[in-house]
Design a protein around this nucleic acid. Structure first.
Lengths: 243, 243
DNA sequence: GCCAGACTTCCGCCTCGTGGAAGTCCTGGC
DNA sequence: GCCAGGACTTCCACGAGGCGGAAGTCTGGC
């Protein structure tokens, strides 16, 4: 176990519900002794990768955030998509999400949420199941058959009663998604929530998905799809401008 | 020199113009031998902090990006500001920027740029001089007098002929900024560019600044300020909702 | 096929990391 | 204000892991 691995273990402790951690919490979470954590965290703080506030809690630092802006996710995809997402947000007034496929999950790259919107779990950095989210179903639908088969061979979690956890049922949904060019979810991730999502296709590959999350009562796929497709096209155009 | 420090040296090599680096470039940039770089980078790749593509170049990985989403800059400020920035972008059709004061520079947290907009250097993650940028002048103006004095005691760079590099002249501009509640720049950072920016104030402290960058010919402070102030108020409201 | 540049792997040596324990600081209850 | 308990912070001998030069392999251009 290398020192670098241990330091990265510490960084990996920061999550959606753990954005500020005490030294003792770092120690408990990583299984490393207090003094080891203290020493490694001190280096991370000195280098700006962690920040330690007056409350003595550690938070992810500006230095790490700055490096992250150079990742293709941020530098390329997110930045190219942002103006189109902003327009989409203004036109719909709903929750807007942009996600990529990573490690068999939908990784949320961006989320715009307003006051009228319903609470969602899809914040930037969140990882959610492919089969229960609009963007996730799109990401899965456009994978090669072997990847789909592999994904469906593992047990599918069922966060809500409506989630499609039966592989055959899900396969049909994925086929429909491909046939019409967009996915629909109804209370498959969160009760009361529905979504529509479309793929962002480059050279025949689905590089990301963009979706709108709405209250079930406001779900109107044809209206949302038209708007989403314009946004997706704008994002593709921007990405191709970079190539 | 610790292994962790060396690894962080590698990560710090990634910048606005160096988003993809070969092993040899990592070695040259860090001054570390090839095999040391190779070993450290292998760990970073295994942990998702770097990614190595088919072109064998290293890029910042999804794992690091995910940790960065937990930083206060992203988790708190950027996410709270994004809907208001989207609205601002839609209302103005111009470049929108959000920045904080960090290390004596304006650190850009977010930037929305569209087709009509002019090219700017103010991408997310960029660090620019305080005294030559709209958001930077706001961030500086609202600092305690001692901090302003310290900043003005160092030589002020002059990227353009119009940049205010004379401390007395800049002081007057900062005083005007405070008096009227917004800053204006005219070709002080980039020829042809102008901007207006307002502070995001919490508990009497300027925690960030939000600005619009336009072509000089389209500069219209009163129109922009009204829109900016509404956005700033919305951001403050969202931040206070988190507290 | 040849060759130069860019890696990738190996391993003896030595540098740095470790973590238990002692000491210090902080906080909250009385 | 006092004090006890919890949360650190510091120290250093020992040993685990990191280092980097050199040899070997891979890649792409000619």
């Amino acid at each position: 176990m290398s020192a670098l691995d241990r330091a990265l273990d510490l960084l990996d402790l920061f999550g959606p519900d753990t954005t500020a951690l005490s030294l003792t919490e770092l120690s408990a979470g990583s299984g490393l002794p207090l003094s080891t954590c203290h020493r490694l965290a001190a280096t991370l703080v000195a280098r700006g990768y962690l920040d330690r506030g007056e409350d003595r809690r550690y938070r992810v630092g500006v230095g790490l955030w700055s490096v992250a802006q150079r990742s293709p996710l941020s530098d390329r995809l997110r930045e190219s998509a942002l103006p189109a997402l902003a327009r989409l947000y203004e036109e719909t007034g709903e929750n807007i999400t942009l996600a990529v496929l990573d490690g068999g999950r939908a990784l949320y790259v961006e989320r715009l949420m307003g006051e009228r919107s319903i609470p969602t779990v899809s914040r930037a950095g969140a990882r959610l199941p492919l089969h229960t989210t609009g963007v996730g179903k799109v990401l899965l639908a456009y994978q090669p058959e072997a990847a789909i088969a592999a994904h469906l061979s593992a047990p599918l979690e069922r966060p809500t009663r409506d989630a499609l956890a039966d592989p055959a049922r899900l396969r049909r949904d994925l086929a429909e998604t491909r046939a019409r060019g967009y996915s629909v979810t109804r209370q498959e991730m969160t009760l009361g929530s529905a979504s529509v999502a479309v793929p962002i296709l480059q050279a025949g590959r689905c590089v990301a998905a963009v979706g709108v999350i709405v209250h079930l009562a406001r779900l109107d796929p044809p209206r949302l799809v038209a708007t989403l497709s314009r946004a997706a096209a704008a994002i593709v155009a921007e990405l191709e401008r970079l190539d």
